[in-house]
Structures are given as C-alpha cells and as structure tokens.
Design a protein around this nucleic acid. Structure first.
Lengths: 338, 338
DNA sequence: ATTAACGGTGCAACCGGTTGTACAACCATG
DNA sequence: CATGGTTGTACAACCGGTTGCACCGTTAAT
C-alpha cells in the first residue's frame, strides 16, 4: 500500500494545498468563527487529502498543553491490578476522558529510579495533570507536584495531609460503608459479630472498622477483630482459626469480597450454613460477589464513578478550577448471604 | 515554604542571570564542547539558582522527540497483571530506560474508545516509540504505527505476520522451553506423560506443545494433552479429572507454574507423591515456584531480560536502527518436583 | 607585522503550531 | 461619493527550546 510516511505533513503543506496562509488553515481546522464556511471546506478537504494530523509537539508548545494525563501508581502494578476492582477505576478515568482529547497513561513509580524519571518529566511539564491512585506513599513526588503547581487529584483519604488546599481529593466514604454493613447485621438481628479485615495499616481498613464500631460499639470487642491480607485464602485461614478457637459468631463482616469468599468456603466446609447460621457481608462488590453461592451481600464502592470524577476534576483543574474534595457514597447491595 | 511556582523559569531567565545569550546557556547546559568550562559553571549555577528544568514541550519541538515511550497493552490490565510475571517484564523495561532520559508509560487500549485516543496520539507523535506487549490483537493500531513509521517493538511471536520487516520483535523460544521440559522428563525415565496446557488458541501453548512433541513424539498422544486456563484451579480440576478417568501418568508437563501448583495439590490430596510417583514440571519460574513443597522444577522465561531487550531495541530504533528479531532463550530450573 | 588557526560567544533561523492585529474588500448608510 | 462597519484573510510574533553560521579576540606561525 502506501509507503511508511517517514515525514508527516505539516500545516504549511495543508495551507499551500488549500491556497491559504498557515494562520487561516489553522483557524479553519479549529473551526474559528472568523473563517468563511467555504474556506473551511477547502482547508478541511486539503487536510484530509494529505492526511494531516497536527503535530503534538508543535501544538503543545503553542497551546501550553500536552493533552496527556498521568495516572501515577506508586505501588507495584501487579499488586494493584491483582485486585480487578481497580480496573473499574481506570475504566472510569478513560470513560470520562474519552469525550475530551486527553489521553491517560499509567506511570509506575514504585522504585526510586522510576520516581526520579517521573519527577523529571513532571518538572518538564510532560503531563497536564496527575491522578495519584495511591497517595499514601511517595510524598516526595507530591511535594514536587505541589511546587510545580501541576493540577493533581489524589484518590484516597489522607488524614490531615498537608496538601488539602493544593490538590483535589476523591475518595469513597469507608466509614459510611462500615456503618452500612454493620447496620445490616444489626437489622438482621445478629449479635455476635466478628470482623475479618485487611492489613491493619491500611487507611481504608481503619475507617471501615470505625464505621462498624459506630454502630456496634462494645459488641465488637478487639478480640473479635482480625487483621489479615485481602485474599480469599486469608479469609479461609482466619475462619478456620476462629472455628478452632471455638468462638461463637452469627455474623462476619469482611474487609473485601475476596476475603468473604474464603470465609464462606470455610463455613461450608465446617457444615455451618450461610446465611442460616451465620451472616456474611463483604466489601467492594467485586465481580465474583454475585456469582458465588450464596450470592454475597456486600458494600459497593463506586470505583468507576470515582475514576470518572477524578478525571473530570483533573480536566477542571487544567482549566483553572480550584482544588476540591469529593466524597463518594457507599451503597449496600442486598443479596443472599445476610 | 516556597510558593507554588505557577510559572516555570525559562532558558532566557537563566541566560540573563548568567550574563550570556540563550544559545550559550543552552549549549552550556547540554555540555557542548564549544563552551568554556568557566562559562558552563556560571550557567549551571544560574540554572540551579532559579531551579531551571528545560520545558518538555519546547525541547520536544526543537529536538523532535518527546522522550516518552508507550507500552501498549491491548488486553484489560487486570488480565495482564493478575499474572505477576508480567511486572517482571515491565521492570526490565524501566530498568533499561533508567539510564536514558526516556520515560515509559502504559497505554491501555482494550476498548475501541481507548484505541481511538491512542491512535490519535500516535498520529500526533506524542510518543517516540511503542512497545506492544500483546500484539496478537489490535492490528489496526499496528497498521497505524506502520504507516506513521513510529519505531515499534512487538513482544511475542507472530507467526508470519505482515510486519516482520517494519517492526522489531522480541520473544522467548517457547518451543525450546517445551523441549527442555520434555527432555528433563525423558532423562528422569518418565514414560507416561500428560500435558496440562493453557488455552488452545494461545500461540505460546502451541509452541510449547510442539517442543514437547519434538522430544516425546508418539509417546505424547492427543488424548494426553489437556487444554485449560492458566490458574491453579485449572490445574487442580484437570488432575482430578485425570485421576477420575484412571489415566496412569508418571509425569505431568504444565503450561504454567500456577497450573503446576494445582496439579501438585490434587496429587497430594489423592495420596500420590510428587516427585516419587509422578514428576511435575512447570513453566515461567513464577515466584511461587521456589516456595511450594516440593519446590517446582520449571522452565524459566527470561521476562525481565525480554523487557530490557525490548526497551533497548526501541531506543536503537529511535536512533535510526533497522528492525530486528530477537529470540530469548529458555532455561531449565532444577528443583525438587522432578 | 600580517595572517592563519582556533576557542568562545551571540545572532538569527528553525521546529510546528496558535493568535493578536493590521488590512483589504465588500456592503450599507447618510 | 465619502464614511463606517463587517467580514475574511494574511502578516508576524510567540510558545521555549536547539543549532548553523558569522564574528570576535587570542595566540602562534610565517
């Protein structure tokens, strides 16, 4: 077919082909009201003819934007994406940006090498905005972004971090989610409740527990709170140990749906019926939640909407909007495990 | 501390501060031999003083490069990264680029929306090169890249695809890996061998099987070849079915280490000893391989090196090198399961 | 003393777009 | 017919760097 076009057509060529000046060609292609319909048509035809696409570098220099937004990930990617819920979040971002001309790219910055490169490109202004997916760590980069004044959106709740009025923040209300889960247990009449959470140092875990306690108070003593990992296996192990310790429980609040699947599996194995003997509530509304038996009652975290929101705010900030803080609401999804 | 610097310092300011012209300042910062040591010192000091970092947009326009390399992912990210081995590959890329000034970014292009955005930015020349991680699909984008003449590296073996002499290719020799695994079985004296592979339509699976057969020939009949998924559960299920069908086997060749863990679990459960009664060989040298009991003998695919190689080739192509095809070699890792 | 060679520097053009402003052509109005 | 207001276009400057080339002041060679 066509030979590989090593040299891309420039605006000048389009202008010449259409018999107008560069400036007119530019305005015509950008649909300026100052150009006549007829000229626009001619220029567009010429552009199509030579297969013209405005060069990003020239355009970026002129308009002061690269139209690229970096999604900053400071953990190893495999850690992040082993939880498929995160791709929901990303989908939200791309969904929101799909109507704009902005392109999201993922920037891994887990090693210090990577962070240095990232820092360099931030300083060079390679990106118009940054969405930080896991702002708990990597504060050095945040500091850089702050100094440079790069529009930045933090996803996650940072307790009293120093950037509140410089960066935007989007997060789901984990405490609210915890309250919803605990409330559901209470309404169901469950009294002896155990919580199988994720890692103790995770901020979301802390908040969710606070939510549980806001409802259950003393009826959820420390010895009934188990910290573990996020996986199904962790839930399984934790439940086995519970049973071994002969702790009576008629309700288990889980830190994630994956944990919940493990918990349910362990109960099944022990001949304990869910939800007849014991109620289980998950967290996340992971895709497996609806598929397991019994279908899992869980707390839905609006990750996709969070992504959309983050991207939307990033665009607003690029256009000069002030930083904002947005709290997304959790939702109880009633299924069969309660 | 310092106020957010909304407006970054330009080269002109540095030049003025150092009392030289812009061109001299530029040359000094780029370490041109035409500038005296003394002037360089002065300029560098001035640059440090005002905290100067060359603006990516201006620089990109002048030198014709953005110094950003896109890592193109055409599958959902969660699918790719649920297998942690892939982050090895990415580490290889960043490792190789860390000595250059290039920044790798991940570009997800699984939806058609995303592909359109990506296409647009390719046309605009937002990236200096592209590394396609899963070039089996998304050939439309490859076509665009070909036409634009963007340096592109494909990771994976594409049987007779039409881009061989336009793009570079890097892949591991799966057939060789298959031979190594089968050879190890043979040397161990195993005769009745079963293969539990991944999906039948996966090119790597096809090649690995070809490698097995190159060594085992007729002693690996079709009825002993099982196609399944990549997960531990798949290996477990497949083995259960084997046992149910009372097929005698003294060796199992697995398509992935995760499959192998499931296989071993099923044998253990059935009271069959690995490696006394039956030998198991995995594939990938996944991080769990060394940790399970018995430690898994497996075929190591040099993913990190593949990543480094891909990035290196991308850099070479940016500098005008011709496309190349690189085959990485597999390696047998001897542990206890054989 | 004249000139060639050379190291160091600055002017100006360039990369490829966008945009403020001047200007020409046209129309309607007084 | 002169005037003023539109409308459509082009010139030129600008974004922020890099780079070819001319120029200057030395020093060394003739």
């Amino acid at each position: 077919m066509t030979q590989p076009a090593r040299t891309a057509p420039t605006l000048a060529e389009v202008a010449e082909a259409a018999g107008v000046s560069r400036s007119t060609a530019s305005r015509a292609l950008n649909d300026s009201p100052r150009i006549s319909e007829e000229t626009k048509k001619r220029v567009r035809a010429a552009a199509k003819e030579v297969n013209f696409v405005p060069n990003a570098r020239g355009r970026a220099l002129a308009v002061g934007r690269t139209e690229i937004i970096a999604v900053l990930v400071t953990e190893p990617l495999s850690e992040l994406f082993s939880d498929p819920t995160y791709s929901e979040f990303l989908s939200g971002i791309t969904e929101e940006l799909s109507e704009s001309s902005y392109l999201p790219v993922i920037l891994q910055a887990s090693s210090s090498h990577e962070r240095n490169r990232a820092r360099e490109h931030f300083e060079r202004r390679s990106f118009d905005a940054v969405i930080d997916v896991s702002p708990y760590k990597g504060s050095e980069l945040l500091e850089v972004l702050r100094e440079l004044g790069v529009p930045t959106v933090l996803c996650g709740q940072l307790e009293g971090h120093p950037y509140r009025d410089v960066f935007s923040t989007v997060y789901s209300d984990d405490e609210e989610g915890g309250r919803f889960a605990a409330l559901a247990m209470k309404d169901r009449g469950r009294k002896d409740i155990v919580a199988v959470l994720g890692p103790q140092d995770n901020p979301a875990v802390v908040d969710r527990l606070r939510g549980y306690r806001a409802i259950l108070g003393e009826s959820l003593p420390d010895e009934n709170v188990i910290y573990t990992g996020w996986s199904s296996g962790d839930g399984y192990q934790a439940t086995r140990q519970l049973l071994a310790r002969a702790i009576h429980a008629d309700g288990v609040l889980c830190g994630s749906d994956r944990i919940a699947t493990g918990v349910i599996a362990a109960f099944n194995e022990a001949g304990i019926s869910v939800p007849k003997d014991v109620s289980v509530v998950g967290f996340d509304d992971h895709e497996v939640a609806a598929r397991i038996v019994p279908a899992l009652t869980t707390i839905r975290q609006p990750l996709r909407e969070e992504g959309r929101m983050a991207a939307g705010i990033a665009l607003d900030m690029i256009n000069g909007a002030a930083p904002t803080t947005t709290v997304m609401h959790m939702q109880l999804v009633q299924r069969d495990s309660l």
